[in-house]
Simulated assay, not measured.
Amino acid sequence: MEAALAHGDVAAILTEPALTNIGIVLPEDGFLDDLRRLATEHGTLLMIDETHTFSAGWGGATREWKLEPDIVVIGKSIGGGIPSGAYGISREVAAAVTRHTAAGDADIVDVGGSAAPWRATPCRRPRCARPSARS
């Protein structure tokens, strides 16, 4: 992971807290802590996919193991059989999204960029146009 991040062009690390499509494979001690450290050092977002592990209990593995992702995604288990999903973001990511959308520089779909949420792509869609003085 360290070698992959060394180039500075990775926007996000996406991982499950435990592998679940081949049974339950728990991470080695320190693995998730090291991912958090590396993501922080390289300005990369850490995303935790709690699609399966969230059903392990309130807050899933993220809460149980005191993980600190920038973004957490949850699916399947929250829908009770109905296709659904949800996500949560850290205060820092929320502030970056708000800063860029409030400035009119980007919409929520465009926030991102090559390495971090604070490198927003300008929104060029008609729905993003600033209102005229008559509006």
Rank of each mutant, 00 (worst) to 15 (best):
L14K: 11
W58I: 09
T101C: 12
R37Y: 05
L38T: 09
L32E: 03
P122K: 00
P122S: 01
S84E: 03
G75S: 11
L67M: 05
G23A: 04
A56E: 11
E41L: 12
F54T: 05
G88Q: 08
A94Q: 11
K76F: 11
L35A: 09
R63N: 09
W118Q: 11
D107Q: 01
L14V: 15
E50W: 06
L26H: 09
A116N: 15
D107P: 02
R119L: 09
C123G: 06
E64C: 06
I108S: 11
R91V: 14
V72S: 14
W65Y: 08
G75Y: 06
G43W: 01
L46W: 00
H42N: 15
G113C: 05
I108L: 11
I22F: 08
V111F: 00
G113D: 01
W58C: 12
S77D: 01
T20N: 03
R91C: 06
T53V: 13
E16W: 14
A102G: 10
I82Y: 07
G60C: 04
S77Q: 11
A120Q: 03
G112A: 06
A95S: 08
C123A: 15
H52A: 15
R36W: 06
T62Y: 00
G75L: 07
D107I: 08
V93N: 06
K76V: 14
